[in-house]
Design a binder for these strands. Structure first.
Lengths: 202, 202
DNA sequence: AAAAATACATACAAAGATGTTTCCATTTCC
DNA sequence: GGAAATGGAAACATCTTTGTATGTATTTTT
């Protein structure tokens, strides 16, 4: 028999992962408690027990979990500049172009725009992406290059859903960008192939 | 008294525009026939009369209308290469960074992923964006640069919703990109400022 | 001008979703 | 070992949304 803490965290994890999978497959509009529960193999009572107000408690946890997972990869590599971070992310999508975690985030993000209650829950966590993932604080100088590369990064992620999506072409385009802008000074020396591998999913 | 054709097309237009506005404000998840109708000032009976299966008839028309509006701007400028088109679009967002029409399209696009019936309706129209807006056909050679600039374009559009969104910074980043890649050969000669203005909304 | 079709409104039934309560089985605490 | 708390299941009411049927005024047709 498992302890209560173990049981709790186990079913919570199942609910969270079911939610992420459903967001990827069906999108936010078709996300419902019933579907989440049948996917997770628990009852609605269980969901409401752990997340009393349903999605409004569940989705912030989902967002935090996905962002924290990304963040963890960077923390292992030590301090670095925003520009270096974007470069590492671009090389990350180059290595793993069809990682799907960002789909769930985008679905929640688009839905939160029109749902105040949801926005109150997830908004602050999304805001924390800037410092936590991109290393951007209030005192960071504005850098057109870093922002432009963020555009490339997000545009490339979005491109997965496009009619002419093709991994090879996507990678070719990303290579073209990286060749054009060049590496940040000392980049290759600091981030070896080994470090790069850590940016890929576990 | 107006003719029936006039009345029909008037209420259809009101329904379409109400839908676009709601998609922008509330997102796809909170889009409902009731809300569309009260926004458009017509009854649900009217909606169902013109669009018998509700959103599944309405949204394809919405998508087609938004894409056709963009397409019209290009048609006025004569034939051009895909690369030239992307350049014009980038300069378009440079001139009008916070045009919101793409929000509605993105909402529908994200929802269609998980809704077969919706996808059947809007999928082909979205696919037509490649030839109609980007000038890409099956025989068009793969060009990493054009694809990369599409990433920038879409990433920039998405950036509107970001926590650190700032028109000035967005424009600076786009300028940085355009300076870096340079103009296509003969671009300035063919597309004068006057032509550029036609890419902005009417 | 009568008939037919069209544009639109209203009402109702059937699903689906959420909010809430109650109940039972295990742990955990004393 | 008994009391209290916790995890989880099931049931119910309510609300929202959609599908559908019916009614009516206006326009078009003949």
């Amino acid at each position: 028999m498992a302890t209560q803490i173990e049981r709790s965290s186990a079913t919570q994890t199942r609910l969270i992962e079911a939610t992420i999978a459903l967001l990827d497959e069906l999108g936010y509009a078709r996300l419902s408690e019933t579907r989440i529960c049948e996917r997770a193999g628990v009852s609605r009572g269980a969901l409401r027990h752990h997340f009393p107000s349903g999605r409004y408690d569940l989705l912030p946890v989902v967002v935090e979990r996905l962002i924290a997972a990304e963040e963890a990869r960077f923390l292992a590599l030590g301090p670095m500049t925003p520009l270096e971070r974007v470069h590492l992310m671009l090389r990350g999508t180059l290595a793993q172009p069809d990682r799907s975690t960002s789909v769930a985030l985008l679905q929640i993000w688009m839905a939160a725009r029109g749902d105040t209650k949801l926005y109150d829950g997830v908004g602050p966590i999304f805001d924390s992406v800037l410092p936590r993932l991109f290393g951007l604080t209030d005192t960071t100088p504005d850098d057109p290059q870093t922002l432009a590369l963020r555009f490339v990064l997000h545009g490339a992620a979005l491109h997965r859903f496009n009619a002419d999506y093709d991994v090879a072409k996507l990678r070719a385009a990303l290579h073209w960008v990286l060749d054009l802008v060049g590496e940040p000074t000392g980049f290759a020396a600091r981030f070896t192939d080994v470090a790069l591998l850590q940016l890929e999913p576990a």
